[in-house]
Amino acid sequence: MTHPSPKSEFIQGIMDQLPLQLGVVPFGLVFGVLGMASGLSAWQTILMSSVIFGGASQVVFAQLWMAGAAPIIVGSSVAVLNLRHVLYSVAVAKYLRLLSLRWRILLGYLLTDEAFAISIKRFEHDPTPRNAHYHLLGSGVTLWAFWQLSTIAGVVLGATLPAHLNLDFAIPMTFIAIVLPSLRHVPHVLAAVSSGLVAVFGQSLPYNLWIIAAAITGIVIGAQAEKWKAQQ
């Protein structure tokens, strides 16, 4: 079997990633606007997109900071939200294990939801991929560039956007677009509903603990429901 060259893998990664930018760009814009509105400086908002490089967790960071949450709560909420990346890491590990440390560090940094979603298909398509890591590099770099540019655009535009547009409402709308299509089984729905209920009625919990309490409730109820369902 012939293997595509590194260059053609890299370009294919870019091409496969481009359609997803339709959703990434508005999300980045909204984060840029929200970051500034929540009291972060322009530099903090822009650099967070490189340092954390995780859309939903950056939004949570900004919202909790704006609400005056303690640093430990902000930090652990971001960490809980990003735990899912361990799953992506598991899934791609067998394809990346033999690469040099430098490659593995770079691809680890680029392993976001979107890059994973696109490149895992490439990896699974060919059981012994020789240059497929260039595909992940291409899709990861593409996402990175669009995320940085749309964050910067949001920071620049933020000051000029009128308040009556309710742009903060774009965050839950973006999440609705992500979560709703992923509710495929009853346990998923139970996880979503139970987490939502704790979030709404746990608002008075001290230290903004509601987000962690809601997340743990949803995760445990969803996973237990799935287990019971499988045993029946």
């Binding site: 939200l81 996880a191 809601a214 743990i216 949803g218 996973a223």
Partner: peptide
């Protein structure tokens, strides 16, 4: 279940 639970909390 991490993404569903956390994002639903923020939405709600």
């Amino acid at each position: 279940y991490v993404p569903i639970a956390v994002l639903s909390a923020i939405i709600a």
